[in-house]
Design a protein around this nucleic acid. Structure first.
Length: 205
DNA sequence: GGTAAGATCAGC
DNA sequence: CTGATCTTACCA
């Protein structure tokens, strides 16, 4: 395999040891990269805030499923939902807080063909990574990557800074697909980016 | 032990 | 708008 790593520096762990409402907008325009060459620019995220957030998986305390999210920052929390989809988060804050940022959309920047194939060869480029489950499928993220260290890259995944700064004017709004704590504006995305998900859901109050 | 809901997506 | 598909969490 050609390790064509997308150019950039691995984010330091301290980047993730903060409040997810600070980390989330700061993650916009960063790169989620895999050692096999697949990489995408993060263009949409949501913050989940543990014990103070009824919509968070960690709201009611530790369980077998959410254990990773209570662990150290900078790891990948992967969960299975709707009987068929995997979704990926970066763990934030201090151990025990259960904080994280859901990765909701990427713009493919490398390993395009591998991503397209992993998604079942969709016709439109936009359908490769615009949505949390699509993003995970495109990158090949499943339960086997739950707990992966995004700083050490122990399982082939890293978050990189390639020099593109976060947007100065990110759009903030309510999170998508939740039934509790709907009003917190804890979703951020890159204004005008065509790879952002949820245009349909985002419109419904 | 039973059951309802789920941080979604694709197809009609 | 609806069906797919199954794990988890919560209640009895």
């Amino acid at each position: 395999m050609t390790s064509t790593r997308w150019p950039g520096t691995t984010l330091p762990r301290r980047f993730f040891r903060r409040d997810p409402r600070v980390v989330a907008p700061d993650l916009l325009n960063k790169i989620i990269a895999r050692d096999d060459g697949r990489a995408g620019r993060i263009v949409e995220v949501e913050a989940y805030c543990g014990a103070e957030d009824p919509a968070a998986h960690t709201f009611r305390g530790p369980t077998k499923r959410n254990a990773t999210m209570f662990g150290p920052a900078g790891h990948l929390y992967v969960y299975f939902t709707y009987g068929m989809h995997w979704c990926a988060n970066t763990v934030c804050g201090k151990e025990g807080q259960g904080w994280g940022v859901l990765l909701r959309a990427i713009e493919p920047v490398a390993g395009l063909e591998a991503m397209r194939e992993a998604r079942g060869n969709p016709a439109r480029l936009k359908d490769i990574g615009s949505g949390p489950a699509r993003l995970a499928q495109a990158m090949g993220i499943t339960g086997g990557q739950d707990g992966a260290d995004l700083i050490k890259g122990d399982r082939g995944f890293r978050v990189l800074d390639d020099g593109t700064p976060p947007p100065l004017d990110p759009v903030a709004g309510p999170r998508i697909g939740i039934s509790q704590a709907k009003d917190h504006p804890w979703r951020w995305y890159v204004r005008g980016n065509p790879y952002v998900s949820g245009s349909r859901l985002a419109r419904k109050s």
